[in-house]
Structure formats: C-alpha cells, structure tokens
Design a protein around this nucleic acid. Structure first.
Lengths: 209, 209
DNA sequence: GGTGTGAGGTGACATTCGTCAGGGGACGGC
DNA sequence: GCCGTCCCCTGACGAATGTCACCTCACACC
C-alpha cells in the first residue's frame, strides 16, 4: 500500500529459502508461495551442499528442504543447520524418513501430496515456533516402529540394491563373502522377506535404507 | 478429423489442463503457468483415468501429463487422447519413456528438471503446431536404441521386481517355473546383467520396463 | 512352401543364495 | 565383572537360481 520503502515492513514478511533439485518444481513452488503476501522466497538452491552457504548469506526464517538432492542428503543437511527453522518437503511419505527428520530436529514435515494451503500454513506455524507433521505419516511412523536393522545390515542391504552378486558386495564393503551372506540373511529375517530383493524393497518402503 | 465447427481464433488464451498426482506440485505448476498472461489453467486432475473425461468437459488446447499417476498410466492415456495436444511432463528422463511417448503421438516431452520458462514456451510452441522434446533425452534415446526385450520378457521382469521366487512369478503369470527361468535368463543376457535384480534395475533405468 | 520369431514348455547342470551353528573381539551398562 | 549387542569371520548344507540344449505350436512374411 505505501509506496514508500518501509524497512519495518520487511520484518513482517517471512523469508523462505527453497531447496529442491528439480528446477521446474522449485520455480513453481516459488510462484505458489509468492501468491501469499506475508511470504517471500528469498532464495533457491538445487543441491544439498548449497543450503548451508545460502542460509548464512540470505538469513531466511524458514528453509523448505527436499530430501533427495545431489550433493548432500536433505535429512543430513537439516541436522547441521542452526539458527533457522526447517521444513522437510518431499515426495516420499516413508515413516522412517519422518523419524529421521525428527531426530534431525526439523520443525515440520510436509509431503508433496499435501494441499496447496497446507504448505503456506505450515510455514507460518513453524515460523511462529510451532511444529507441523503430516498426520497420516506420524501415525504410520508409530505403527511401523523403529528401524530394526543394525548399521552393517543396512550397509549390506543398501549395497545389495545396487545389484551384483554377494562377492561384488563383499568386495565393495571389504568384507568376506560369508559375512555378507550372514548380514543379508539376518536382514531378510528381520524384514520378513524371502530374498534380498524383497528385503531391500521392504526396507526402502519404510525409509530404513 | 472432425469436420465440425472450427473455432478459428476465438481464444487468444491457451487453455491448459494439468494432470499430476501430487497436489502441491500441481497447484504450484498452476500458479507458475498462471503468471503467463497468455496461458490459462482450466482444470486439474490427479488420476490418469480422470484425464479423458476432463478433456471432453473442458476442451483444453494443451494437456500437461505426468507419467506416474494412479488409475491410469500417463503414456497410455496420451495414446488414447484425440483432438488435443499433449505434453508429457515428468520427473523421469528415461530414454524408453520418450520413445513410448513419441509412439503415443504426444507433441512434447519436458522433464521436471527443466527451467521455468521452458514449460510455458513448450506449451506455446506445441499449441502453435510444433513439437518440443528434451534435447538431452532425445540424444540418449538414440544411443540407447530400441527396447530389446520381448513382451513376455518384460512381463516376467516386471513381476520379478515385485519380489518373490520363481515359483511365485510363475503362478502369478500362469506359466511353468522353467519358462519363467528361461525368460529371466534371456532378459538377463540381453541387458548384460548378472542376475534378475540387476536386470530389473537396468531395464527400469532405461524405461523399458 | 520355407523361414523367422515369439510364446510356452521340459530336463539337466553348475553356481549362487539363504540358513544354521559355531568361533572370535570390542564396547557399554548395571 | 558379567551380560548384551554389534561387529567380523568360518564352514557346511539344502534350496533357489541361472544357463543350456532341445522340443512343440502359432503366426507373419516373402
């Protein structure tokens, strides 16, 4: 309304930083948030390792973080950010992701399947000091429970998804063949699967990978 | 070709229909396209099987179609649409998808990694009668070549990705165990893989699945 | 009519997998 | 100090997998 530059006005606006590897989606989200008068997208980055520098440079109030990004994983990035509120914004409604996000101290978790208004709302609530987590996902997280896999079991299972034989995995992880088979067998048992492929699918679906 | 009323240049505005299963992305894309004065998003659907009815009801000039949608596959939907220009808009830059899209007669293929201006441009060019295909993807498509898998090999490989043993797959497809093993072996050979998991990954990455 | 290709099948074989029963060592908690 | 857990390894065994040779049948194409 006032055409005059008013610096106090700036403090009213919530400064948002967007991190998503898909240009089009990022720009589109910026356009969407730009429709809200009290929100301002002050920056956009496409890689995980660009988030921290951008935060220092732009001093946003809230960061919207995708999980799957080149350079650095969104959940890892979130764990290291300080002095800014973080909302995870991702395609994947995997219970394990939510848990990891909460452990990383994020203030919100919104899936890309949410309705348009929810995102702006989440930004406002989080900026006001609240926490916003997808309800269905929170419920699923409780029923799913904690990740039953040990660190090594996860490593081996993750390596198994890349394909290759037991010998390949063993070489990649500097283990003996038998050890790899044991970890795989153990993981298969814990996940109620019938072979490594099924186990990998199950673990991935729950965000335990 | 319908010889009915040709609506000369009634509309200067290009009518766009959006089909994407993720609410937030869809709304965001609508906001982005809404910024262009010559484009108008006249409708949005979230499922593949809602596209055809929406086209009849809303008569858009251009349809933006995601590939992975519940209800019906975007590529399949594209093949059945008539009287409207189709642009595939998807996350996946898989050569095989591009090929299938071209076979389905679509007018454009844009990946979600594209820059914001490219989408609006693509809509305009396509509406004007042109064709717009992602350059890098087109190149990859040429080098990748055609899908070497036979129909049955694809079926078996697809079933294999769901997990389960050979016997399970055989039961699901009403085949004998030996036949399933033969198809898998053949597919593994053609794809240069070393087991079914590697083969499935390779096929999926190229969009041959 | 011959030829090629894809679908579907059988039987045999070597290899790989998944399982089980052990054997260590390191570390943290009560 | 003992117990539990995770790490790492070995060896053995049966079941599942991947490969190969070879078979019929249908269909399209020249």
């Amino acid at each position: 309304m006032t055409g005059v530059t008013d610096m106090t006005d700036v403090t009213r606006v919530i400064r948002v930083l967007l991190a998503d590897d898909q240009h089009l989606v990022r720009e589109a989200l910026a356009a969407l948030l730009g429709l809200e008068p009290d929100l301002e997208v002050v920056g956009q980055v496409s890689r995980g390792d660009e988030v921290a520098p951008a935060v220092t440079a732009l001093r946003p109030d809230v960061v919207l973080l995708d999980i799957e990004m080149p350079g650095r994983d969104g959940l890892t990035v979130a764990g290291d950010l300080t002095g800014v509120r973080v909302i995870i914004l991702t395609t994947f409604g995997r219970p394990g992701y939510l848990r990891r996000a909460m452990d990383a101290g994020v203030a919100g978790y919104v899936v890309k399947d949410a309705r348009a208004g929810e995102l702006a709302d989440a930004v406002r609530r989080v900026h006001a000091g609240g926490r916003v987590f997808d309800r269905r996902l929170a419920a699923a997280s409780v029923s799913t429970g904690a990740n039953p896999l040990t660190g090594r079991e996860r490593d081996v299972l993750r390596a198994a998804t890349e394909g290759g034989t037991v010998a390949d995995i063993a070489r990649r992880l500097h283990l003996s063949d038998g050890t790899v088979r044991n970890y795989l067998s153990s993981a298969i048992g814990k996940l109620g699967a019938r072979n490594r492929a099924e186990a990998a699918r199950a673990a991935e679906a729950k965000g335990w990978l």
